[in-house]
Write a protein that binds this DNA or RNA. Structure first.
Lengths: 330, 330
DNA sequence: AATAAAAAAGACAACGTTGTTTAGTTGTGT
DNA sequence: ACACAACTAAACAACGTTGTCTTTTTTATT
């Protein structure tokens, strides 16, 4: 590829002048600037970033490590959020997938160090508490969708409590009084926060606790996680007789819709349905379309990148708000 | 960060010897190698990639441009496939999301040129024919999940014809004789290939064409694409009376399941259902679980990276095979 | 023990940039 | 016309590596 000296020769100036033009140094006479720009255009010159990084001692590159335990469309949202911000500021984002079997997080961090990244975003695919490699502490870093056991790193996580409060309040506001919450696996952080949020909303509205039923219907067995949502829905409708069901995730809502249809109940009229995620086009696929709390992955990615770009080092636990997507299911 | 000369001083050898150890040059005596390794460990030295790239004149970095028209979990599969291969060979992958509003593909290519990438993978989020920026021709490049209008670039695309043939044959083998295929928007490449595949299977099995019904139930109107699957399913069952329905995508199958349940038909016993995608955990969510043709995104990502790493320049149109995931819906 | 051959390690330049210093050019006020 | 400042541009070093060439050390052979 053509280099700065060739451009200089072509433009009839010193190569340092070309460098100045490329770096928008204002001390270049207009006439020379034009000559250089023309030469760059004609030769298709693109500055060599590696050389620039070597000399400048700063890379303008940030790393994003995505763990791959679960592959979800949300991964991509976090990446998009971070990258959109990075790009606005002319920074690069280097994305590395981590995967226990093939590539460890430690290895990924080493790679990123070699590239002299100026900061690292570590993104987990689901909201949880993580044991962070110590290496990460040697460099500005943020966690996305997870927090550190040792609480020694800043992180951004979804505000599960707020999400559950918001949708429960919305349900109550619409007149639903007897709510069954089919929660996720109770061992994960998301499930705990949401349970709290639903309870908060009941208390804020002075509703009796006997009108609230909460059960975890994603349970763990030897093969990993497993949904008992169908069985639970049938049972809960028959025994608890709710006027609304809040589902721990949109996929669960699909199952609930099926069971309700089979039992001859109609969504909204007989039982209102709410959910969490706003997973792809699942909510629009259902009829009536599902009202759900959208996970703030894109915004979390943005927040993380902004945190790094601001040069922050404070250890905060930032909570990003879900958004209520009102459709037709309650 | 610590540099090669500091390591050399600490180890008591010349800095060139450190370079040799780092690059696994076998002409270093074991005793010195150990000294250097120890020094590297103690100082936490990581070679500076930018400097190495500058000197070596090759970056070991490849670019992946992902267009963002549609965000799907499959995007990530393509990236994973490419990255897994890249990493095995100690190459880096730089992923850039492209998005008409913010960042054009041209801009992404410029960025990648600055990083002196050794090749570029351009991945489309759905299978289609694209007008490729000429810039891409200046460097080794492959297209994933799309092909070039001008046919001037190698590409890897899903083998839609094979997929449709395979699942239709499987349906026929299991005794289904009268098949309705609810296809995607007929304007997209995938729909065309699949239609052909279904027809091929009927011909190969000498089945009468009047036992095959094909309709595109994803249609375009002023607001973009829209599904008429529910209406069509009801109509097709009533008028064509199929013993199997083949759906253009898993999401469509969800709708078909709902309609069938509402009409009092049971999946598999009354009407067998097959589909395309293997979208996340949608197929497992349905009961009975959905048999579907899994899109080969991961493999396409791998193929693309292997193409570049092999230094190939031949303009091929490689087709990657779908995989039949047999579950319980027919 | 002497010598040649082979192996290992060092010296130094080069990669394509940018930072700093120095030199040259232009303009202004007397 | 002259001094001086203010611009502008050139020259040169430096960044942290690796390639090439040279020197030193080790090993093998007699």
């Amino acid at each position: 590829m053509v280099n700065i000296k060739q451009v200089a020769a072509h433009a009839g100036v010193s190569f340092k002048t070309v460098s100045r033009v490329v770096n928008k140094d204002p001390t270049v006479k207009k006439i020379n600037q034009e000559k250089v720009l023309k030469a760059i255009e004609e030769l298709g010159y693109r500055p060599n970033r590696a050389a620039s990084i070597t000399r400048r001692k700063q890379s303008g590159v940030f790393g994003l490590i995505a763990d791959e335990l679960l592959k979800t469309p949300f991964t991509f949202d976090i990446i998009r959020g971070a990258q959109d911000i990075a790009w606005e500021q002319n920074k690069e984002l280097m994305v590395l997938n981590v995967n226990e079997k093939r590539f460890s997080a430690e290895k990924a961090i080493e790679h990123l160090f070699e590239h002299r990244v100026e900061g690292i975003i570590y993104a987990s695919m689901y909201h949880r508490v993580l044991d962070i490699p110590d290496e990460l502490l040697k460099i500005p870093a943020v966690l996305v969708n997870c927090s550190a056991i040792k609480e020694n790193l800043a992180c951004v996580i979804p505000d599960e409590v707020q999400a559950a409060e918001t949708i429960t309040n919305s349900l109550i506001e619409k007149g639903y009084k007897r709510i069954a919450f089919l929660n996720l696996n109770e061992n994960i952080a998301a499930a705990k926060g949401r349970k709290q949020g639903v309870i908060n909303a009941f208390q804020q509205n002075n509703l009796p606790m006997q009108d609230l039923y909460i059960e975890s219907v994603i349970i763990e067995d030897k093969n990993g996680e497993k949904s008992i949502a169908r069985e639970a829905t049938r049972r809960v409708i028959n025994t608890f007789n709710p006027d609304a069901i809040l589902c721990g995730q949109d996929f669960m809502a699909v199952e609930v819709y099926f069971i309700m249809q089979a039992m001859g109940y109609s969504v909204k009229q007989d039982i209102g349905i709410g959910s969490f995620d706003d997973w792809e086009n699942t909510p629009q696929l259902l009829q009536p379309m599902l009202t759900t709390m959208a996970l703030p992955h894109y915004k979390m990615g943005q927040w993380a990148m902004n945190y790094l770009l601001a040069g922050r080092k404070d250890i905060v636990k930032h909570k990003e708000q879900f958004k209520l997507i009102e459709r037709e299911s309650f």
